[in-house]
Design a protein around this nucleic acid. Sequence first.
DNA 1: GCCAACGTTGGC
DNA 2: GCCAACGTTGGC
Length: 152
Amino acid sequence: MACWLVKTEPDAYSIDDLERDGTTDWTGVRNYQARNFLRQMQVGDKVLLYHSNAEPSGVVGMGSVAQLAGPDRTQFDPRSEFFDAKASREAPRWFCPKIRFVRRFRRTVPLEALRAASALQGLLLLQRGSRLSVIPVSDAHCKAIVSMSAGK
DNA sequence: GCCAACGTTGGC
DNA sequence: GCCAACGTTGGC
């Protein structure tokens, strides 16, 4: 069972929203590398939820993959901010899995703490200039982040 | 296929 | 709001 980390801006869609919704289509990812990771997600994979542009930014909880990635409906909707005129239903460009809320962490693991953790060296999120909104996380890194969320 | 210009992300 | 670091676009 793989583990992933997905970023979201809480002003746009927060873990509160996911908790309320239960599950949601993870729409709006418009980067090819991130898309390719979304398509690799398997049902049951863990998903660490990360709030970016937040106070503080950090990992706020856990979700899981509820459904394999299918075409992202927002790419077909001219009224959507994620509309993509070059996509068609015959040849969709963007895909999204369904993500299920699992739990909120007792405490947010802020970016600063992630950077300070020697156990997290090599985590893609922490690499200089990394902007990917969907990244794979190794089992060891995943465990380390979860243990940080529970306190020492 | 190169690369300058432009757009986006996201920490600070 | 600034801006560094990337990604994408489009002229040539």
